[in-house]
């Protein structure tokens, strides 16, 4: 009797066997990304809250190198493009192009991180700005450092996919794994779009 009553509900399930009709892995990634808004939002808010309230220098306008940061932002944007091209390639079963694009994405990410390391080093050595110098230093390094940590995790993920592909352990049927990694990567990119504008470009 109970089984009869449950039958229509089971019929509503799709081929992925979930009540939502989508795979748990993909839905889980979207929910995770949704929660990440709150994490990054708190650090961006902290930066804005303390902006202009430092009693000692250096101040943002004295340290930012907009042409340099614009270049690294451009590189991160391009990494999003190569990421979707890698997904398009593996969906078509083109493993050679997939490996080229996924490696290009990881290399763009590494270049972005390299730029961030250079920027941090420059701020510390030339501008004498550290985590404990003033409120600007604290909020800036924590926010951009948090983002850099996310990019680093993404690079490891991408290189893992590249490694799996070279070993022949990533088939076209595994495209969803690439798509989920791509979702994370694009999210890191959209967060940088916000950070670049709000932190670097908005008038000081």
């Amino acid at each position: 009797m109970e089984q009869t009553a449950l039958a229509p509900a089971h019929d509503a399930y799709d081929s992925h066997g979930t009540a939502t009709g989508v795979t748990n892995a993909k839905l889980g990634m979207w929910i995770f990304l949704s929660s990440e808004f709150l994490l990054f939002g708190s650090f961006i808010s902290a930066y804005l809250l303390y902006k202009g309230r430092s009693h000692t220098g250096p101040k943002p306008a004295q340290v930012y190198d907009i042409p340099f940061t614009s270049t690294t932002s451009f590189i991160l944007l391009m990494s999003s493009l190569t990421m979707v091209l890698s997904l398009a390639a593996i969906q078509r079963g083109d493993h050679r192009r997939f490996r080229i694009w996924i490696l290009a994405t990881a290399l763009f990410g590494l270049t972005f991180i390299g730029g961030q390391v250079y920027e941090f080093t420059n701020f510390f050595r030339e501008q004498h700005l550290s985590l404990s110098t003033n409120l600007f230093g604290s909020t800036f390094f924590v926010l951009t450092g948090l983002h850099g940590a996310h990019v680093t995790a993404g690079i490891i993920w991408l290189l893992s996919l590249f490694g799996l592909s070279t070993q022949g352990r990533l088939a076209a049927g595994d495209s969803e794994k690439v798509e989920i990694a791509g979702l994370y990567w694009h999210f890191v990119d959209v967060i940088w779009i916000v950070i670049f504008t709000v932190i670097y470009l908005v008038p000081k």
């Binding site: 009709g21 839905l27 999003s80």
Partner: peptide
């Protein structure tokens, strides 16, 4: 980026709803 690269315009609306919910919240 969200609509084209993350495929929110072509995927099921449930993803867009979760993403929008997080962003708006």
């Amino acid at each position: 980026v969200a609509a084209w690269y993350m495929h929110l315009r072509t995927d099921r609306p449930i993803f867009r709803r979760f993403f929008t919910l997080g962003a708006v919240a």
